[in-house]
Write a protein that binds this DNA or RNA. Structure first.
Lengths: 135, 135
DNA sequence: CAGCATCCCGACAGATACTG
DNA sequence: CAGTATCTGTCGGGATGCTG
């Protein structure tokens, strides 16, 4: 099925290399510590900056801003400024953002399913490979 | 569906917080630039260290070693040393590793499908938000 | 061949202070 | 309230050199 293979396929002068890089770049998005957490918070309702800041425990103001900017840039969230005082800025998931979240959750299923197994593997490995002795 | 919710669920004294952290940690695994590339190379055959080094373009010896150690620790790949000279070390995907790859590929579908859309969004955003003027 | 040890640099996260 | 600006420390990761 070439149509399948070419879903989101390369453009005319585009190499597979380039496409691969882009995909990796997108994968990195979900590896990002904060992105998924922020998106997760926006799952079922729009939130204000401060609400997000409180909801995502541990994130700094700076990181929240940067993360939101990136998500906005990618078209995963919308940023709506209400012209009033005090300022009121609301963030919401776009449809694209929702589909991303769904996919990530699907992958999260894998992680949840194999979490224990992986942790066990780690413990076993660490037991078998003790931290260097210094005689 | 509580059974669903508890797939890979928490142990006795384990908080949801901790479980969440672990899942995030696993998600970070695939955000890692090299992990997926290495795993991808091992998709259909076992490879030697040098072969991997050549196959994964751009990776440094150091990063390849570290990546492989992490994957081995997590039980995603096996490391087999053949006692001969010159040394011969072979890496292969475990079953767990295979299921991970499958899941990642599934997510990769999402990325491939929306790649263009995201890139367009970025271009549009960058056009609308020119890099700061300094008067 | 496979891989560990060391040095080193740039990127990036956190804290803090200031502004529309 | 919702940011921006700046400084600073850390840390990932590349290059290099040495071993089993």
């Amino acid at each position: 099925m070439t149509a399948q293979k070419n879903a989101g396929g390369q453009g005319p002068g585009e190499t597979e290399e380039e496409a691969c890089r882009e995909v990796l770049q997108i994968l990195a998005l979900i590896g990002d510590k904060w992105s998924i957490l922020v998106i997760g918070q926006l799952r079922d309702r729009t939130l204000r900056f401060g609400e997000l800041h409180r909801a995502v425990t541990g994130i700094s103001q700076r990181m929240l801003t940067l993360t939101l900017r990136q998500l906005e840039r990618d078209g995963l969230v919308t940023r709506t400024v209400h012209a009033c005082v005090p300022p009121r800025v609301e963030y919401a998931l776009t449809e694209l953002g929702t589909t991303l979240l769904d996919s990530v959750v699907a992958f999260g299923q894998w992680a949840a399913t194999h979490r224990k197994e992986i942790c066990d593997n780690r413990r076993r490995y660490d037991a078998a490979h003790p931290p260097r002795k210094r005689p």
